[in-house]
Design a protein around this nucleic acid. Structure first.
Lengths: 324, 324
DNA sequence: TTGAAAGCGCTAACAG
DNA sequence: CTGTTAGCGCTTTCAA
């Protein structure tokens, strides 16, 4: 920066101003500086800026996993909005592991991000403490956490599960089973599903707990196991579309009529859900919209705007297609 | 850090040592410092450390997009290896836009990452210049770029396309068409496919250029258009599995026998490819392995190890299933 | 509108 | 093994 200043015949501060608040520099002066920057290919050191200014313009994003997953959409939505505002994204993956989450969050906080986004609630009390102590805006996403640290953007996983149960029962199904991964959001969906069944005076079939994150193979295997047991159900709710798709394909392979013999519903509304044969009934959730809303929350919190709404419930919409 | 030092009755540097090189501090001293850190919940400021030590322990990852995409696997692979070594990941998405790429890379470089990973070659000469001037290890991935900036980890997209053509021809197909997105890697795959056809003395059907990134819907629409033209082909190669899957589902819907009437091949070997009915023939590519290898390249380059191999070709493997 | 001075919170280099 | 000294490259006052 000193070199640029010398080259432009101004003081170092002026270069800093051209970079940060160009409107406060006289056009002629500005031009001299900009020319020098262009000639040299100078790239400002934002690390030094972060230290001096105590604003890093970095936002941390903590997700369970990004591979083959819906959370990638949330990161995408978050990035789009935040990058436009000059923020960079620091990405971390917990793989649903509480210990890992805590050390990851600690490492991220060491980078002094201006804000942080988390999928779900923290997995451990330690992480929660770290986050509270960090004193930066935090947004939890993908679930309307009861007692959030700061902001929440999501929907009720319980309500989503219940919605599916009600739909299946209205369609005349009586032997309903839920299947889902071994993590908080899946369990909430399953609980809502069971509640919906109970509310109709029916008895739910025992839920099946699968590995997280689920995949098409997980769905296929679960379906096979059920078929081997004689398929005692007439409707299945998978807590994620990709698992439901795997199960649906297995039904096709084994010539089990869907929805004739068995109804299948998923959750997420993957682009592929609508393309399946038959198209999959599911609950629509826009991971990208969640990311975008989270970014907006964070942006206004960083701007110091006392945001009226700390809780944003994006709601949940049943998309009835042909598998039910 | 000064507070911790005072509390532990040592000098500030000693605290720094406990945090960075604990083996160089006497166990008793170390314990006093660690206790003080635990009591206060102190989180080291790595930004200041980066400025003072000129090592940020940040690696930048620049991908076209992470949503619904294979590149998420690469980021995953990269992260796993790098996080274990104490690095954080700064994520950026170009959406295949050269202008965006350049401003993104500039912003990332301002954060002084210790290394950078790029999917493919830079989209513009400006980006390339920035990267060269940055003086940090750079790894280009997903394609064996001819003249890389520094390191490359990938496979030959041309060879992959050619492999598919040879397979289809060996299976007796004669009217082969390639379909793929409008970006460099897709085009290379299509070029290889065309070359394979020409080498057999056949005439390729005109390739179809689709939007990037492709989706199942893209595949369905492309398939519909072809059917409406009377489906002049007996084999189709889609440059990505998800597009091929969309096309395959459309064939099922329109009762076009696969592979009887039409052979279909994809590329990528998505987990879902093997689950399709019939299972999809494809070219296996592990995005995660690419990320992992890239991380290892970067790690050894940052360690100053004069890495013997600057080019790692992970090769390409045809997975013959039932759609061909 | 521009500039001079004083740090931001650490690590590197050197000494003891 | 521990401590002292001197910055890292910026932004933030404050003054002119």
């Amino acid at each position: 920066m000193e070199d640029i200043a010398a080259m432009a015949g101004v003081a170092l501060v002026t270069v800093s101003r051209v970079l940060n608040t160009p409107e406060r520099v006289a056009p002629a002066t500005r031009k001299k500086v900009e020319d020098a920057i262009r000639r040299t290919g100078y790239v400002q050191n934002l690390t030094a800026g972060a230290l001096a200014g105590s604003r890093s313009r970095i936002v941390a994003a903590v997700v369970p996993t990004i591979a083959n997953s819906i959370f990638a959409d949330t990161v995408q939505g978050l990035t789009e909005t935040l990058e436009a505002a000059g923020y960079a994204i620091l990405l971390g993956q917990t793989t649903y592991d509480a210990t890992r989450e805590e050390s990851l969050v600690r490492a991220m906080l060491g980078r002094r991000p201006d804000a942080l986004m988390l999928v779900g609630a923290p997995l451990s009390a330690g992480t929660r403490r770290l986050l509270k102590a960090a004193g930066i805006p935090v947004v939890e996403t993908w679930d309307m956490v009861e007692r959030p640290i700061d902001h929440v953007v999501g929907f009720s996983n319980f309500a989503a599960g219940r919605l599916v149960a009600e739909h299946l029962i209205a369609r005349g199904r009586r032997r309903l089973r839920g299947l889902g991964g071994d993590e908080a959001r899946s369990r909430a969906r399953l609980a809502g599903f069971a509640a919906g069944i109970a509310a109709a005076g029916l008895e739910p079939q025992p839920a099946v707990v699968l590995a997280s994150p689920g995949s098409a193979t997980t769905g296929r295997d679960a379906m096979r196991a059920l078929i081997d047991q004689g398929l005692p159900d007439d409707a299945l709710f998978f807590t994620s579309d990709i698992i439901a798709i795997g199960a649906l394909l297995e039904c096709q392979r084994r010539a089990i009529a869907v929805p004739g013999r068995l109804a299948i519903a998923g959750l997420g509304d993957l682009e592929l859900a609508a393309q399946m044969v038959p198209p999959l009934t599911t609950v629509r959730i826009s991971g990208r919209a969640i990311g975008k809303a989270a970014a907006e929350q964070l942006l206004s919190a960083m701007a110091g705007t006392p945001s009226a709404r700390r809780r944003i419930d994006l709601g949940v919409e049943l998309v009835v297609r042909e598998t039910t």
